[in-house]
């Protein structure tokens, strides 16, 4: 996460009574929304502000809270607020979260939460796939790999998402067989992972920019996951981390390869 931070001194803009909504709107567009969009922290300093109105605070932060949810709230620091200012900020945040705009529109494609992976390590997915041969059920897989049944479930589900397992009979697909036969850490393995990710529904619908030079932020991915699945924010953030983790695992190899190319 990028932690670039900046501070808005409210008194300099409003004086001791922060009530002009035009000023609030300007700060919202110029400072708050760009920071939240880019995953950056922002501090709003209310030192020497004695009084504010609910309309002012609403115009200042409500859009950001509705757009970026709790994650957006976590990026904002409210400094030196008196009791009243704090109460108004709390109120606006509470109802803005309640009316968060993170809702699907009529043309949004909804996908199942089961199509969003939650196994962070591609290596362990491969280990589970290799262990499938000779294992009749999850319990046997668990005994064989030493992973908990819950984590076996995550990895099998991710393998299905990546097209390595047939969703109907649960058997390895051709690409699944290809994968288990590749050498660990090899370029062939990396290419198969990349192809599988690019062919997956989650990549095409939610993270088409996952493998680009500039990755989408955790928040951006989480927001898209929430939009397409209706997941809660905290779950969506965890699943976004899985996708970013996959990117890192593939990207590492790519960097080494480039270095070798240069040599």
């Amino acid at each position: 996460m990028n932690n670039t931070s900046s501070t808005v001194i409210m008194y300099d803009l409003t004086g001791s009574f922060a009530e002009n909504k035009d000023t609030a709107r300007q700060v919202r567009y110029k400072d708050i929304l760009p920071h939240l969009e880019n995953n950056n922290n922002i501090c709003i300093d209310f030192s020497s502000v004695d009084l504010t109105t609910q309309s002012f605070i609403h115009a200042l932060i409500s859009e950001g809270v509705r757009k970026y949810g709790e994650f957006g709230v976590s990026l904002i620091t409210f400094k030196s607020c008196n009791t009243l200012v704090k109460s108004i900020i709390r109120t606006v945040i509470y109802y803005s979260l309640e009316y968060s705009t993170i809702e699907p529109s009529s043309d949004t494609v909804i996908i199942s939460t089961e199509d969003i992976p939650q196994a962070n390590s591609l290596d362990t997915i491969k280990i589970v796939l290799r262990s499938l041969q000779g294992s009749k059920n999850i319990e046997q897989l668990s005994n064989k790999t030493g992973y908990s049944k819950r984590h076996i479930g995550y990895r099998l589900s991710s393998a299905r998402i990546l097209g390595y397992l047939d969703p109907i009979n649960g058997e390895l697909t051709n690409t699944g067989i290809e994968l288990v036969n590749t050498e660990v850490g090899s370029e062939d393995e990396r290419k198969l992972f990349i192809n599988a990710i690019e062919d997956s529904k989650v990549y095409q619908l939610i993270a088409p920019d996952l493998l680009e030079d500039k990755s989408p932020s955790q928040h951006t991915l989480a927001k898209r996951i929430m939009l397409h699945t209706g997941m809660s924010e905290s779950t969506a953030v965890r699943r976004a981390n899985t996708l970013l983790s996959w990117r890192r695992q593939i990207g590492d190899s790519q960097m080494i390869l480039r270095l070798f190319d240069l040599i």
Partner: peptide, 11 residues
Amino acid sequence: SVYSSSDNAGA
């Protein structure tokens, strides 16, 4: 919808 304007709290 209630509270959904960015500029107007309806307060």
